[in-house]
Design a protein around this nucleic acid. Structure first.
Lengths: 196, 196
DNA sequence: CACGTTCTTGAACAGGCGTTAAATCCAAGG
DNA sequence: CCTTGGATTTAACGCCTGTTCAAGAACGTG
């Protein structure tokens, strides 16, 4: 029995290029513009080759999400363990490219069950990590957990980032940059006054 | 020159039914599922008739947004003038159906310039109203405008509602209902402690 | 009833879609 | 050098798309 031959060096690289191109298209033209042909053109290959690497478009979307999410779960875990958890978390949450992509994935997930399941699993995992840390750390920040329970703080971090970044990226004139700056200052204040 | 004849009574009704069907499709299958044929089928007419009422799909999307937004601008204006502005605002912002539709419109706007312009105009108008009221009312609520300036409060109201409602509607298990409940209590507390 | 407008349809165009099957290319192993 | 098998392409399938055009139906008015 012959040894399993290793795939060519170029093939893992090609997977990466396909995922990169898909992200780019989602950001520039929306998730609905993602098709085997549009992705293929962007990469410089033929459409069926996309299906060779990702047999259906659902698989492709899920792969885009998983690559992003895998990195983000790690980063969030590291952020929450850092010496300034709120600041590190906020920096992650307010990433512009990530947020823009998130809007598309969220909307796409609404009518792609496989993607929706994956989004749900990742969202739950990340929130679980956040809540766990907040349980023990809110007090150090001097935040009254009666008034601002972990679930609300987590929703606020996520929500403010989402709302302001989305408006800022899209160019909607809603004082979004002012809100982002104020949030920066608020986080600074909280980190400075942290008791531990 | 003959007097301009009024359009038939049924035709305004048909416009409404087309817009209703479009909203329904956006909610159930996403904005990408909106097509002249899918809308026509839902209404029980032929595809070209959709174009008779809304000559392009862009026009249709913009009309959906405008109908919603028109109502919402009025409601928000009324809310901000009410005796409990934050509570009324929060009730509006946390509307489930409106939020779900908003995700779709936001994503659709990212690659439909005409829609994007309209979203921008409406977002700016609503935010302007909110900021104006917050300028004068934050103090009454005992909120330090140095720490929580109007822009941040507005982004937070919008963001928390968006984040929690979206997760709740999609069924993502992220303690969203807990966050919504906590926000309700927070608003209650603020309204109760209002000095005016 | 006849006219003119409004509303509605049937048919068609050119193009894009996801996906499959078969054929071809090409590099490495024996 | 020739076989093997992964990587890639060409061709094709049936279907859906936005939109236009011309024809027809339904209706209010003179």
């Amino acid at each position: 029995m012959a040894e399993a031959r290793r795939p060519r060096a170029a093939s893992e690289e090609k997977r990466r290029r396909i995922l990169d191109a898909t992200e780019e298209i989602m950001l520039k033209e929306g998730y609905a513009a993602v098709s085997s042909r549009s992705v293929a053109t962007a990469v410089g290959i033929q459409a069926p080759l996309v299906h060779y690497y990702f047999s259906t478009l659902d698989d492709l979307f899920v792969a885009v999400l998983e690559r992003r999410a895998g990195r983000n779960v790690e980063r969030m875990a590291a952020a929450l363990l850092s010496t300034a958890p709120l600041r590190a978390w906020w920096q992650l949450a307010s990433d512009r490219r990530g947020t823009a992509l998130f809007v598309e994935l969220l909307a796409a997930a609404n009518h792609r069950p496989a993607l929706k399941a994956e989004v749900g699993a990742i969202a739950r995992e990340i929130r679980r990590m956040q809540l766990e840390v907040l349980e023990s750390v809110l007090e150090e920040y001097g935040i009254d957990a009666e008034v601002f329970p972990p679930a609300l703080v987590a929703a606020a971090m996520q929500g403010v980032a989402f709302s302001a970044v989305q408006d800022s990226v899209a160019g909607y004139d809603t004082a979004a940059d002012e809100a982002l700056a104020a949030m920066d200052r608020l986080i600074d204040r909280l980190e400075a006054g942290r008791s531990n």
